[in-house]
Design a protein around this nucleic acid. Structure first.
Length: 193
DNA sequence: GAAGGTCAAGCGCA
DNA sequence: CTGCGCTTGACCTT
C-alpha cells in the first residue's frame, strides 16, 4: 500500500464514506499547540487488566469527556469545530489516548457498535509523533492497509467500516515520541462512560 | 444463563 | 534484529 497516496481517495470505501485520511486537517503550528495543551492539562488516567497470573497496565493513557461538558482549559471545543467542518455529525463524546513511546499500543480491534449511533462517523485527530495504524478487512483476503497518522491529520471512519474492518497500532522497539489521538464519537442517548 | 469474543505481555521461532 | 503467532483470564457481548 502506498503510504503517500492522494488524501482525497478513501482508504476503504463503503456507502457511508468508508475510511478517509485527511493529512492536512490542521496546520503544523495548530497541531503542535493542541498537542502541548492536551498533553499537559488533560487528566490522564491509567487502566489495568489481568494478564495470565498478574495485572498489567493498559499500554496507553486515557481520558474522555462529554461534548456538553468539555473542560474550558483544553482546546477540545476548538478541535470539534474543525472536525465539524470536515465530518459533520452530532458528536456526544470525545476520547483521548496518549501513546507515551513505541511500547505503547492498541491491539487490532473495531469500535463496539452498540456504543455508537448507526450512520455516524468516528473522527480521529492525531497529534504529536506520527504512528502507523494498520487497518485490516475482517472477511476474505486479510490484506492490511498501513496509514501513517501524522500530527494534524484527521481519520474519518464510517459506522459500517467498524463492521467490516479492524484497526490497531502495533508496538515497536524503535524510539518514538509521544502521540495523542483525539476521537470524536456519537454515542447513544443512554451511554455511560 | 451459557457460550463466545476481547485484549493485555512475553516467549519461541522464522 | 524484527516481526509473527501463540498463550490465559476477567470481563463483556450475544
Amino acid at each position: 500500500m502506498d503510504l503517500f497516496s492522494t488524501p482525497a481517495a478513501p482508504l476503504v470505501d463503503d456507502e457511508q464514506g468508508g475510511i478517509r485520511y485527511l493529512r492536512d486537517f490542521a496546520g503544523p503550528g495548530q497541531a503542535q499547540s493542541w498537542f502541548e495543551a492536551l498533553r499537559q492539562h488533560t487528566d490522564w488516567s491509567h487502566q489495568r487488566r489481568p494478564m495470565y497470573d498478574r495485572v498489567v497496565d493498559v499500554p496507553r493513557l486515557l481520558a474522555s469527556y462529554q461534548i456538553d461538558a468539555l473542560p474550558p482549559h483544553l482546546p477540545l471545543a476548538e478541535m470539534l469545530g474543525h472536525v465539524h467542518a470536515q465530518a459533520p455529525a452530532p458528536y456526544t463524546t470525545v476520547g483521548l489516548n496518549l501513546y507515551r513511546d513505541g511500547s505503547d499500543s492498541v491491539a487490532m480491534h473495531n469500535d463496539k457498535l452498540h456504543t455508537l449511533v448507526p450512520g455516524n462517523p468516528i473522527a480521529l485527530v492525531s497529534l504529536g509523533h506520527p504512528r502507523r495504524m494498520l487497518i485490516r478487512g475482517k472477511s476474505g483476503t486479510c490484506h492490511s492497509i498501513a496509514v501513517e497518522l501524522e500530527p494534524g491529520s484527521l481519520l474519518v471512519m464510517s459506522h459500517v467500516s467498524q463492521l467490516t474492518h479492524e484497526h490497531g497500532i502495533h508496538k515497536t522497539t524503535r524510539p518514538f515520541g509521544q502521540r495523542i489521538s483525539v476521537v470524536f464519537r456519537v454515542r447513544p442517548p443512554d451511554w455511560k462512560e
